[in-house]
Design a protein around this nucleic acid. Sequence first.
DNA 1: GTCTATACGATGATAGAC
DNA 2: GTCTATCATCGTATAGAC
Lengths: 191, 191
Amino acid sequence: MARNSTKERIFEEAAILFRDKGYLASTMRELAAKVDLQVSSLYSYIGGKEEILHKICFDNARRFLTGLKNIEAQPLSPSEKVQKLISEQIHIATSDVTSVTIFNDEWRHLSEPYLAEFLQMRKDYERRFIKIIQEGIDAGEFVEIDATVAVFTLLTSLRWLHRWYPARKGISIKSLEREILKVIFHGLKAR
Amino acid sequence: MARNSTKERIFEEAAILFRDKGYLASTMRELAAKVDLQVSSLYSYIGGKEEILHKICFDNARRFLTGLKNIEAQPLSPSEKVQKLISEQIHIATSDVTSVTIFNDEWRHLSEPYLAEFLQMRKDYERRFIKIIQEGIDAGEFVEIDATVAVFTLLTSLRWLHRWYPARKGISIKSLEREILKVIFHGLKAR
DNA sequence: GTCTATACGATGATAGAC
DNA sequence: GTCTATCATCGTATAGAC
């Protein structure tokens, strides 16, 4: 009994291809070669190229939104919520690089109406993240800052973590998380 | 006398196209339509599609490296240097969105040997930025952090500034800069 | 489910007349 | 420098035999 079905292998190889070359530059011919099939045979398993992109983007969007929902529901302070959100982002980005890369970089090649739906989920996540930061500011836990600027500043560095963290070879996920939290919570400047 | 030559108009329209749809999804036919020429006429002005991408990527790489070099040469503290670097990134990213978007998002479609050359310039910039942070740590101006993690955390949020700052409508560049500096230097947490 | 064969449109680029 | 015409190639996807 094989560990992975042909369909699973197609999705996995496609993800690697999309990650390395981008969605548009990846061809069905290459994908077929990777899984040792003729191009036409791929279509016995999937409806088309975009179906793969769609699955990756929406699986990840749902994953992040579910994580956020769980954190929102817990009786935590804004600080603790932000810490958990950052921790979650780091763990997902480092453990599932391929998938997160595509989620972050290739969603724009979704066709309508999926693109609009995706953007709405993304915006929803950002809006709810901003709300948590604003609650922290109002509660006096965070400094008086523009919550939107703060969220995008930190969210952006997390979203593209997958691109740069291989540059810091040898660091453990635990240390990576500690260092990032240090920068985000306390900033660069010594007291 | 026209303000822009045909060649300049081709580069400008191509940049907008690349920014909006990505390099691969942009076609020479679309570009020709934008500048009111037949496709074949474009080739009287440029050698090919990649020449445009090449120019945008390398012009920007040089611009950022030149800015860094100037700052390095000044008799400033690491803190002041970092502040100037951040300020410069913000000004370029907000004043020349189109160009910076392509520089950040589309360089990977450069073919060799240009790709390798580009990556080397990029790495050089990062390495020198890390060095400044490390000097700040050694001088006691910055907290004891992993300089690489710190640089990528902040550099990433600056590099993709062009993607999110329209989400914070109405904010002035001055305020944007102040808020970002606040987050990066002092962090989220209230004292 | 896998194959061979192929449809069919889009692509970057060129040839050569004017 | 601009055009019309065209090329070779590659893209996703389908038809239909086995």
